[in-house]
Amino acid sequence: MRLRSWLAGLAMVLLGSVAHAAEECPATSNSMGDIIAALNAAPSCDRAMKLFEACAYGASGDVQFGEVAEKKCEADFIGQAKPSQKLSYQRELGICDRKYRNRSGTMYISATAFCRAEVAQRYSRRVLQAGGAGR
């Protein structure tokens, strides 16, 4: 059982390394403040997600980065979402929050942050593809 958990963690780290190789983090330094500034400056949800992937620590610090990307994506749809859509969105975020809750290690905290941001990105893309307001 521990071996399986360890292997799952290793797979997440390796997959994260592949994602990071796709683009260099454009922040002026590796500090959390500089990365958050770069995320806030992103012109769109998709760009914020690319930066999040490129700049992620792979640890609990990713929560702050994910929150910025999540909010950037929410700006595309949350204001025009119907109550039922908002409820559906909140349920999907809850699934992310529960997915790794019984796992130990900061990489699982990072995985939760990515899951939440990816949910927000999916909702943003749906609205933008449907011709809704957005960035």
Rank of each mutant, 00 (worst) to 15 (best):
80 Q>I: 12
39 L>C: 01
81 A>M: 15
100 Y>C: 03
115 C>S: 04
23 E>V: 12
30 N>E: 15
108 Y>D: 09
71 K>T: 02
7 L>P: 13
33 G>N: 10
44 S>L: 01
31 S>P: 07
116 R>M: 12
60 S>Q: 08
75 A>G: 14
1 M>V: 14
27 A>I: 05
86 K>Q: 10
125 R>V: 12
1 M>L: 10
135 R>C: 12
83 P>A: 04
109 I>S: 11
99 K>C: 06
40 N>M: 02
70 E>Q: 10
21 A>F: 04
52 F>M: 00
38 A>L: 02
44 S>F: 00
12 M>I: 06
53 E>G: 11
121 Q>W: 12
85 Q>W: 08
14 L>P: 09
75 A>D: 13
23 E>D: 13
45 C>T: 03
30 N>W: 15
46 D>H: 07
74 E>G: 05
107 M>S: 13
93 L>Y: 01
66 G>S: 02
7 L>V: 14
124 S>F: 00
40 N>G: 07
8 A>S: 12
110 S>F: 02
111 A>D: 08
106 T>P: 08
23 E>N: 10
60 S>N: 15
23 E>M: 15
78 I>A: 09
107 M>I: 10
31 S>N: 08
67 E>C: 07
22 A>M: 07
114 F>S: 08
86 K>P: 06
129 Q>S: 09
33 G>D: 11
120 A>H: 05
40 N>E: 07
18 V>D: 10
104 S>H: 11
72 K>L: 01
19 A>Y: 09
119 V>K: 01
70 E>C: 11
54 A>M: 03
117 A>E: 03
118 E>T: 02
96 C>F: 03
125 R>P: 04
70 E>F: 08
26 P>C: 09
52 F>C: 04
35 I>P: 03
4 R>I: 14
5 S>H: 09
126 R>C: 11
66 G>Y: 04
82 K>A: 15
111 A>C: 08
81 A>G: 01
69 A>M: 01
60 S>F: 06
81 A>E: 06
68 V>Y: 03
26 P>A: 04
57 Y>L: 12
112 T>S: 06
15 L>R: 15
51 L>M: 04
97 D>I: 06
42 A>C: 01
82 K>Y: 09
104 S>E: 11
130 A>I: 00
109 I>R: 11
35 I>T: 05
41 A>M: 03
127 V>P: 05
14 L>T: 11
23 E>L: 13
46 D>Q: 07
108 Y>V: 04
128 L>G: 02
39 L>P: 01
4 R>L: 14
15 L>F: 10
103 R>L: 10
35 I>G: 07
27 A>S: 05
63 V>C: 13
10 L>V: 15
100 Y>L: 05
19 A>S: 12
131 G>S: 05
45 C>G: 01
110 S>T: 06
62 D>C: 05
55 C>Q: 07
5 S>L: 13
60 S>A: 09
54 A>D: 01
115 C>A: 04
73 C>E: 04
